[in-house]
């Protein structure tokens, strides 16, 4: 089985000044996840590691770079799903957590529930000994200045060498959102879905539109009907555009190792690692290739230079 990981850093009109940093960010996240897979790690561990790395990267809107709600707080949503058992963990509107994806994983692993929300999710985090961070540390300088711009989500899908698939999605939601707004990211079948029989999907874009068509589950159902991963993604995103006028993006991996990164927004930063090759892109129809070792080497130099581990 040829292990593969695909990651995205959100589908939206990424401004030029963030373009390079976004591409660098998804490339290093894909390498991070791929190294987990190469070491024999599970698809679940790989998507969690890749998403954590993007949550820690201020260029993306999850964890440290998350957007402020209209009260000036950071509220985060995340989901993780295991395609083998269909087990799933999610958190919504959780505050002051550096890595919501790992809290979602703890909901899946340590409780009999699928989703925890609001202060209940924070209490659970506390009981698990998850470190909290003050709101100030979560809101970056760029955030404070650029409130009004729309920002988005990060996600990952992976297939490990034993044939298991998994997905993870994490977000700070949309800017200036109403307090307590829950978008598509933590909702199973919308922000993500994973099933060993058909594949794994992580979605990004206009959250309310993604919910209306349950985008992740829709893509999976097309795959179940025999469509390729890229046809299934294109058909579903096209349907979302026609039916509810929403734009977005998705990454998909199938149990046989086929993958796709598709979007109907202006840009989506994405990267995919498979067989020591790293594919990546930002513009529609852009598909570049690097040898994975070169990228890993560069990332190491970067992280030596910036102690925070940012690749900017």
């Amino acid at each position: 089985m040829s292990a593969v990981i695909v990651v995205h850093g959100g589908a939206w009109a990424i401004p030029d000044e963030l373009a390079q940093a976004s591409v660098d960010g998804v490339k290093s996240a894909a390498c991070q996840g791929f190294s987990v897979l190469k070491g024999g790690g599970s698809a679940l561990d790989a998507v969690e590691a890749a998403v954590r790395m993007m949550e820690d990267n201020t260029v993306f809107n999850a964890g440290h770079g998350a957007t402020l709600n209209n009260n000036g707080d950071v509220e985060l949503d995340a989901i993780i799903m295991d395609g083998k058992t269909l087990a799933c963990g999610a958190v919504s509107s959780v505050k002051n957590i550096a890595n919501p994806v790992s809290l979602a994983r703890a909901v899946m692993d340590k409780t009999s529930h699928v989703m925890l929300t609001g202060s209940g999710a924070n209490q659970f985090a506390e009981s698990m000994g998850v470190e909290t961070v003050p709101t100030d540390a979560l809101v970056t300088e760029y955030e404070r200045k650029e409130w009004e711009k729309a920002h988005d989500t990060v996600g990952a899908v992976a297939l490990d060498c034993t044939g298991n698939v998994a997905c993870a999605t994490s977000t700070g939601g949309i800017r200036n959102k109403k307090i307590g707004r829950v978008g598509d990211s933590p909702v199973i079948g919308s922000g993500g879905y994973a099933d060993n029989f058909s594949g794994a999907v992580s979605c990004t874009g206009h959250g309310e539109s993604i919910l209306k068509v349950t985008l992740a589950r829709l893509i999976v159902s097309h795959i179940e009907q025999g469509k390729s991963v890229s046809d299934a993604s294109q058909l579903s995103l096209q349907y979302m555009g026609e039916r509810v006028h929403g734009a977005g993006g998705s990454i998909v991996v199938s149990p046989s190792g086929q993958w796709a990164a598709t979007f109907t927004t202006e840009r989506m930063a994405w990267a995919a690692a498979q067989q020591d090759e790293l594919w990546y892109g930002l513009e529609p129809s852009q598909r570049n290739k690097d040898c994975i070792f070169t990228v890993v080497f560069k990332v190491k130099i970067h992280s030596n230079m910036t102690p925070e581990g940012q690749t900017t």
């Binding site: 919504s92 509107s93 929300t117 109403k178 307090i179 307590g180 707004r181 829950v182 978008g183 309310e208």
Partner: peptide, 15 residues
Amino acid sequence: KTSHACLTAEGASKF
């Protein structure tokens, strides 16, 4: 009345 699809916990009460 909102542009959102879901409100949760304290945010829902506030709404």
